[in-house]
């Protein structure tokens, strides 16, 4: 049904022959060659083997890229097993996510989700995922925006990866001040008790793939992941469209 609806939408709002990420002309309506090579270059970059973030300019690197562990992950224990992203939150990805979230171009989920699926497949450590869960929005925010950006990605990924997704199990009970611009400690206390699960039995003993749009400091992802862990999930893995850089 979902795909019939999408086909219908594609009929009356067909994709234009432009790259969905950068807007340049692209005859096959898909990510254009330049964006493709940018994305591919991210694969060659170093990244933290735990949180998946990319090292920024001046970050000290040692050893082989995949053994690399960022400073944060060395001193901090995350409730999730690991997190990965398509690329750093900058350039085309940042622009696209802005258009996706704030200009409400939901159609971009159809571009971002396949890229995330690629990132998922490139990471051998994702094992036996039993359920995909999106990071929830509070009811107020959902009404305002009209859609949950993470839930749309989760639904698309569910189709692409052939793994069931559940967009209703996780809830955000109240609206918290925006995370953007807050220091780490404030972010964590900000989110304390904000998330909850209904039907906790759904995650029992499963490996969970947690979806969000951006991983900045990891506070949101870890707050949700702890809730899921408490509900009895085995492991929680994170997957986001973009991730931050560390220094």
């Amino acid at each position: 049904m979902y795909s019939v609806w999408n086909d219908f939408l594609n009929l009356i709002f067909p994709a234009r022959p432009f790259c969905p990420l950068c807007g340049e002309h692209s005859p096959d309506k898909n990510v254009c060659g330049r964006c493709r090579s940018t994305l591919d270059s991210y694969l060659l970059e170093h990244r933290c083997r735990k949180c998946g973030r990319f090292p920024g300019k001046g970050a000290v690197l040692a050893g082989s890229p995949f053994e690399h562990l960022c400073f944060e992950c060395r001193k901090h224990k995350w409730p999730f097993a690991l997190a990965r992203a398509v690329g750093p939150y900058e350039g085309i990805l940042k622009d696209s996510i802005h258009r996706y979230k704030y200009a409400r171009r939901r159609v971009l989920a159809l571009t971002l989700a396949p890229l995330m699926a690629e990132a998922y497949r490139a990471e051998p450590l994702y094992t036996e995922i039993g359920l995909i869960l999106p990071v929830p929005l509070s009811g107020e925010k959902l009404r305002d925006r009209g859609f949950n950006q993470a839930a749309l990605l989760a639904k698309e990924l569910s189709v692409l990866l052939q793994i069931p997704a559940d967009v209703r199990t996780l809830v955000k009970k109240f609206e918290t001040p925006p995370q953007a611009g807050l220091p780490r400690a404030a972010r964590e206390s900000n989110l304390k008790d904000a998330f909850d699960m209904i039907k906790a039995e759904k995650v029992n003993g499963k490996n969970i793939l947690l979806i969000d749009d951006v991983f900045t400091t990891g506070s949101t992802l870890s707050a949700v992941a702890s809730v899921i862990r408490l509900a009895g999930a085995k492991h929680v893995f994170g997957l986001t469209a973009a991730t931050g850089r560390y220094f």
């Binding site: 709002f13 234009r16 159609v107």
Partner: peptide, 11 residues
């Protein structure tokens, strides 16, 4: 706009 689609006027 509501569905987050790009509108294509000829269509």
């Amino acid at each position: 706009h509501h569905l987050g689609r790009e509108r294509d006027w000829p269509t």
